[in-house]
Design a protein around this nucleic acid. Structure first.
Lengths: 213, 213
DNA sequence: GGACCCATGTAAATAGTTACATGATTCT
DNA sequence: AGAATCATGTAACTATTTACATGGGTCC
């Protein structure tokens, strides 16, 4: 059978969609948005768990629309092209729901800083301290912004929300974000201390082993 | 000028290499290995920070060799092809060192589980509990294996090692691994408790807010 | 006038995954 | 006999990044 018309394939198995598709559906399940707004959301504190640039988002939204998992409404909008506000369809919500229950297979991933630290014994200790300090500053910023959000949420009584409310999910992911940044920050600080004490001590660390992970 | 021979390009800027290349160099800086062994290393407790399959590793090693950042020695080996043991060159070590000192630009990344939790309000709470339980089990296993390694390292006096020794770097990355798994585990457990109490309580959570992140 | 935000696309290149292909040795 | 481990490669496909392209409105 020759495939001449390239119609949207059957798509019975939700696993046929890339994870990015579910990230977009997850954002749209909360609130209808333009592609531009989705890109912003994924860069904001909550929803920091899936990076994507607009060069990836726009084509994927088109695919989702072809599969009728999202729907779009066009308005004149700025720029030469019409502005499209996407919203999730019943079908899209069904697919998202199914995917959430699927076993998670991808653990770990890729971590630039950890790789650098792993290779740091080959480098100048001062250079290592420099990059870890940069990381420390970065994580301190992130943590501060997460904590600001958490305070704002607490005022709105998120702690009493139920798991079928979007704000519960937001609270849960935010909480993980805070834990992650705290852990990273503590580790950066421990590492800096160790690197500096070795630097001062002429190569060998001797001070009392500090606590914290 | 027509490019007819495709000789290894200038490569003055270390940023021209993908991060994978530095992951391979970092492993080889420790000890000469075959491509197969590198793949194993990247799956083991230490060095879990850069995933890569052999389909990516072998071609990249060939690129590194063309640039003379690694060198290989061939032996008859099993299978139809010769077994190649790669080792890092002085040039390779220089490149690695330079890269370590470069500012880290890639933060965050992608996290399947967090995305699922973010979308969990659309799904069946029982399904959510199921996937978080799977995660809990996974992180408990990882943590146990990290702690085993840490105990083994402690016996060998790693805490007194200096930052120019590979084992210090191993200790540092391992320590981060432990912190990460602990944090994740605590979060999974908190989340399960919240999901279950809401399930029992008929939709609204009311119990005393539990501590821990 | 220039920079930045809104807004949407496409093209080219790079990175990463999965499947195909081969074959000896060791363990069950 | 069948599976797992050691070992290396390639091809096809999928995913991601980066650069090009356009243009109005707002702020300094």
């Amino acid at each position: 059978m020759a495939v001449l018309h390239k119609s949207p394939r059957a798509l019975d198995d939700p696993a046929d969609l890339p994870t990015l598709a579910y990230a977009l559906l997850a954002v749209l399940a909360r609130t209808p948005s333009t592609g531009y707004q989705i890109a912003q959301q994924l860069r904001e504190p909550i929803a920091r768990f899936w990076e994507a640039g607009h060069g990836q988002i726009y084509p994927q939204l088109a695919v989702l629309e072809r599969h009728r998992l999202v729907r779009s409404a066009s308005e004149p909008g700025p720029g030469p092209r019409p502005k499209k506000t996407y919203s999730i369809t019943k079908r899209g919500l069904l697919y998202l729901r199914r995917w959430v229950g699927l076993p998670t297979s991808r653990w770990g991933g890729r971590d630039d800083l950890l790789l650098k630290v792993y290779a740091s014994w080959t480098a100048d200790p001062a250079a290592t301290v420099r990059i870890v300090r940069e990381a420390e500053a970065h994580h301190a910023d992130e943590l501060a912004s997460y904590l600001r959000m958490a305070r704002a949420q607490r005022v709105r009584g998120v702690e009493q929300s139920s798991p079928d409310e979007p704000r519960f999910a937001e609270y849960a992911t935010l909480r993980r974000g805070i834990g992650y940044e705290r852990g990273r920050l503590a580790w950066c600080r421990w590492l800096i201390k160790r690197l500096r004490s070795a630097d001062a001590g002429g190569g060998r660390a001797t001070g009392p082993g500090s606590r914290s992970t």
